[in-house]
């Protein structure tokens, strides 16, 4: 294995152009599996920035990648090697960038391409997820409409690349989502729709405000109190106060 690693890093050092321009499996895999939470040299997202991993020992990096399998799903030996190679590479960040430029539209084997319209319907719950997960709007807002349980996703496409977004939608390895979607994973096709929707928000942002539930609530409370007041309008006072002289 060590020789394999060595070979990989050597190859990537020796032929960066080849790795970036051609089929950079490590970078592609990273974009697909890890980019939802991690970057290399572009700051922390949900998980930490992995730029520093290049200075780790190969064994450490490998065990770290293996540990992440519980988040990202099982990886083959070869995939692990590829990822470790990418992480150990000091130019990993550049390779990623090159990769994402090369693959501007994420490839999905089979199925339709993502549709922003369907994404929106999935987001606000008009269309339910195939595996029964909650609609995004339960916790997230877009353009100020929705819950503030999770972060606002209006500008998420600007912060993360499409591949990262896709990965994030699919892996859902975030605080509350991890448990909530463990039994109800988002399918790849649905993730594609959602990504399309998030990207479309860049061009035409939504500004629908959250319906004024608080105002409705206060109005309802007032109404209820009035109903009680009306229902008991002629309740008994003290009988003693009814005593009077003729």
């Amino acid at each position: 294995m060590a020789s394999c690693l060595f070979w990989l890093s050597w190859v990537s050092l020796a032929f960066p152009a080849l790795a970036a321009g051609g089929a950079d499996e490590g970078a592609a895999l990273f974009a697909q599996k890890c980019a939802g939470c991690h970057t290399i040299g572009r700051g922390a997202l949900v998980g930490p920035d992995l730029a520093k991993v290049s200075s780790w020992s190969a064994a450490d990096a490998e065990s770290a990648v293996k540990r992440m399998q519980k988040m990202a799903g099982p990886l083959t030996e070869n995939e692990i090697d590829n990822l470790v190679g990418l992480l150990k590479d000091t130019k990993g960040g550049d390779r990623l960038k090159a990769q994402s430029e090369a693959a501007a539209t994420p490839e999905v084997t089979g199925g339709e391409a993502g549709s922003a319209q369907t994404g929106r319907r999935l987001f606000d719950g008009r269309q339910s997820f195939a595996n029964g997960g909650m609609a995004c709007i339960a916790c997230h807002t877009v353009g100020g409409s929705g819950s503030s349980m999770g972060p606002d996703l209006s500008g998420v496409a600007a912060k993360m690349g499409e591949t990262s977004l896709l990965s994030a939608c699919e892996q859902t390895a975030f605080k509350v989502m991890k448990a909530a979607y463990a039994q109800h994973p988002v399918t790849k096709q649905e993730a594609l729709h959602l990504v399309k929707y998030f990207v479309s928000l860049k061009d035409n942002p939504e500004t629908a405000a959250t319906p004024p539930v608080t105002i409705y609530g206060v109005a309802g409370a007032t109404l209820l109190m009035l109903v009680i007041a009306w229902g008991y309008r002629d309740r008994n006072g003290s009988a003693r106060s009814k005593l009077h002289r003729r």
Binding site: N236, S238, A239, R240, K242, L243
Partner: peptide
């Protein structure tokens, strides 16, 4: 008289 409790015979009240 009004009795105990006051006006207990007043079933319009009680």
């Amino acid at each position: 008289g009004t009795g105990y409790p006051t006006l207990w015979e007043d079933q319009g009240h009680y």
